[in-house]
């Protein structure tokens, strides 16, 4: 194994729940404010999941007040992520759900995946 992958492997987190695009998730993020620390929760749909060792990240989209879409991208292996809860598996036919941006209200729903 080359050294880069070896170093990256030490950083990877395997304790987090597996997520896929379309899932509705609740992400618990540790936020450091000066010397205080608190946990913030961000709930929404996983819009994309980009792989690549320690560089892997995922974007969660949620609809905030007044129908404003808010997207937040997290480094997947960040130690700042406390935990990820998967609430629902959505059925999708593509890996990047950019089409959600142009949909609003009921149209932006995803069918639940049959397991």
């Amino acid at each position: 194994m080359d050294l880069i992958t070896a170093v990256e492997e030490e950083q990877l987190r395997e304790d987090l729940a597996e997520i896929r695009p379309g899932d509705t998730v609740r992400v618990y993020i540790r936020i450091v404010e000066g010397d205080r620390e608190r946990t913030q929760v961000f709930q929404g749909t996983v819009m994309r999941l980009r792989k690549g060792g320690t560089r892997a990240n995922f974007t969660v989209r949620r609809i905030a007040a007044h129908g404003v879409g808010v997207e937040r991208t997290f480094p997947l292996h960040s130690p700042r992520i406390e935990k990820i809860e998967v609430l629902r598996h959505g059925h999708t036919r593509r890996a990047q759900l950019y089409f959600l941006r142009s949909r609003r209200g009921k149209a932006a729903r995803l069918r639940e995946k049959r397991i």
Binding site: Q11, T54, H77
Partner: peptide, 14 residues
């Protein structure tokens, strides 16, 4: 030189 990557520091920053 081996190459570049990114790691998280003790504060959780990249």
């Amino acid at each position: 030189k081996v190459g570049m990557t990114q790691i998280f520091d003790e504060r959780g920053e990249i």
